Simulated scan of single mutants.
Amino acid sequence: MISENLQSSMLGDVEVFRIIEWSGPFAPALGLVPESGAEVWKDNENWLAPDHWEPGSGKAVVALQTWVLRSAGRTVLVDTGVGNGRERPGSPRFHHWQGDFLGTLAQAGIRPTDVDVVVNTHLHGDHVGWNTTGAEGAWTPTFPNAQYLIPARDDFHFGPDNAYAGGHRPDDRLIYEDSIAPVHRSGQAVLWDGTHRIDEHLTLESAPGHTPGSAVVRLASGSDRAVFVGDLLHSPVQILRPSCNSCFCHDPRQAEASRRRILDRAAAERELVVPAHFGGAGAVEVRREGEGFALKRWAAYAAP
């Protein structure tokens, strides 16, 4: 039986799998996107609920997911979720989390040894967790044949040379040491900045602000276009109000500039916008509207 946490689609010659690690009400909407204002949620309740907002509790609904791209004969993972068995005292929901991510990946016909490239759009804990498997003191790369593409600016910011993002959050040290450092030790880490060509269909591009090195993945195949935007967007409300950052953005002004630039190009070039955390269909086409943008069409999937 195929899990409800696995969906697929085709974008040109690229096969796309959506692997959902967890989904549900996450945090108060006005805490997640503090500057959004209550009215935008209420005014759009008819489509925000139930996939993106739970009106009764006031919580934003999100998903933790990995996008798997079979492109140019290779298998590429975009972000790797939370991971199992992690010490995450600052994130109680995912402290010592246990899930079946690898089982869902197997249902898509993908074994860890099949993965050629892992992209971490940024180095927050819910994007790097399955980089490694093991246990405390013995973490090793989950994907032994893969090249791990890691933004150089994030690697420095969250790494030991910057004392793990300045030492403000214990989780930053834990995340780096269990999910990033083992990839460096194995020789599989590739640091990049600016742009990085993955293959004929896929390109990495810096989009800083959410973190110093946060990035997007652009897909172009045939007439299809998509942009995997990581955490530039946590909620569709930020499409309507692109000036609104999430509470997790490191540099709010830079994050807004990156968000507007990416959405502007997506509207102009009809790119499917694929955020890391949208519930529901998980991806959407956008169009320009006034000072911001509007939703045009949600993505559709087939059974894998």
Rank of each mutant, 00 (worst) to 15 (best):
I2R: 14
S8D: 06
F17W: 09
R18I: 13
R18G: 10
S23A: 08
G24K: 15
A27R: 15
A29L: 09
L32E: 06
G37D: 04
W41I: 11
N44S: 05
A49S: 15
P50D: 12
D51C: 11
A60F: 04
A60R: 09
V62K: 11
A63N: 08
Q65T: 12
L69D: 03
G73L: 04
R74F: 00
T75E: 01
V78Y: 06
G81R: 08
G81M: 10
R88I: 00
P92K: 08
W97F: 15
G99A: 13
G99E: 00
D100L: 09
F101R: 15
F101Q: 08
T104A: 13
T113Y: 02
T113M: 01
N120F: 05
T121W: 06
G125Q: 14
G125N: 08
D126P: 02
D126A: 07
N131L: 12
A138Y: 00
W139G: 07
P141W: 11
T142L: 10
T142Q: 12
A146F: 03
A146K: 02
Y148S: 03
D154Q: 04
D154W: 12
F156D: 11
F156R: 13
F158E: 02
P160M: 04
N162P: 06
N162E: 08
A163V: 04
H168D: 15
D171Q: 13
D172M: 09
R173V: 01
R173E: 10
R173A: 10
I175Q: 14
D178L: 01
I180L: 04
P182R: 02
H184I: 05
S186M: 06
G187H: 13
W192Q: 09
D193S: 14
D193N: 12
G194H: 01
D199A: 03
E200C: 01
L204Y: 03
E205D: 07
S206T: 00
A207D: 00
T211S: 12
P212I: 09
A220I: 00
D224G: 02
V229E: 13
G230R: 08
V237N: 02
L240Q: 07
C247T: 12
F248L: 09
Q254L: 13
A255M: 01
E256P: 02
R259Y: 03
D264S: 05
R265W: 06
R270D: 11
L272I: 05
V273K: 09
V274K: 00
A276I: 05
E285Y: 14
E289I: 00
K296N: 11
P304K: 06
